[in-house]
Design a protein around this nucleic acid. Structure first.
Ligand code: MN
Ligand code: MN
Ligand code: ZN
Ligand code: ZN
Lengths: 152, 152
DNA sequence: AAAAAGTTGCAAGCTGTTCTCAATACGCTA
DNA sequence: TAGCGTATTGAGAACAGCTTGCAACTTTTT
């Protein structure tokens, strides 16, 4: 009689995505994606932060692998990569309800808030069209000072 | 009889801006700003490019000084600093007729076009206001592929 | 079981930028 | 216009963030 573990379990989206591209599921890849999934959307982590969060929870994944995995997960559209300027790029879970949001960043403390705006998306589309460019993505970064940092 | 040079000439905006802050006018600073003024607005140069343009025209300014000067000129609002991602920040003459324009960047060849859009500016203002942030500046970067690069 | 192919960790390397510090230049004052 | 105090420079070391080469290791395929 087969043990419970011998039943083939449904492959996760990550696993099937990897498989159909000749790539392999590894513990490292699962850990990185799980971290983002556990933490939820709206959180913007640097590679270093991903590394130390995993390290702190006892999972050792080398920084090089973190970088490789983040790149892969972005290509696979599990994550979104942000260039908020100041101190390295950041990554967030790609949320399918808010795919096209923008960011308001406090340049003092780094606090980052999200917002959506149809006109901004339109503006990018119009600009690309007018000049005959094929649009990939547009991102609005608003640099500002948050209420807590204003009098410092 | 005084030579023509003995007449006190009007200090340039650069010079007077520097003076009132205890800073000094130097040939290096003048050269960097003149390069941008000569080249006109709408050109987005990296620090390396500024360095090699000056070097090629016989003016030797160290790269460290280029970086220091660019930072200074940004603080003095003669230049605008752009983070177009990919390969270093860029600098442009701050044009007072088009202070708030945005950029459409070809990710293949780096060609960068400018456009203006009132709604984008509004979007940044609204977002900052809603969250109680003090707005500094907002920039929309549209990543795209230009007509020349589309079939490559 | 062996071979093939993908992945990892480590360390070295790279790029863009800042910093350290001795030498130099600027601009005020006498 | 010589002298002085301070700002600035150039050269290179240092740094941050990220990528790469490679040997060891882990799947997967045959
Ligand atoms: Mn976000
Ligand atoms: Mn511009
Ligand atoms: Zn803040
Ligand atoms: Zn192009």
């Amino acid at each position: 009689m087969p043990s419970p573990n011998s039943y083939r379990t449904h492959p996760s989206p990550l696993e099937s995505g990897l498989r159909q591209d000749g790539k392999r599921m590894t513990p490292q890849r699962k850990k990185v994606l799980s971290l983002f999934e556990g933490i939820g959307s709206g959180i913007h982590l640097s590679a270093e932060e991903v590394h130390s969060k995993l390290t702190n929870s006892g999972d050792k994944v080398s920084l090089a692998t973190i970088y490789r995995t983040l790149r892969l997960l972005v290509k696979m559209t599990f994550l979104n990569e942000l260039d908020l300027s100041e101190g390295g790029n950041r990554f967030e879970l790609l949320s399918h309800d808010h795919p096209d949001h923008h960011h308001l960043i406090c340049i003092r403390c780094g606090r980052t808030e999200e917002f959506e705006n149809k006109d901004v998306i339109k503006a990018g589309e119009v600009a690309a069209k007018n000049l005959g460019f094929k649009l990939l993505e547009s991102s609005l970064n608003v640099r500002a000072i948050c209420p807590l940092c204003i009098n410092k």
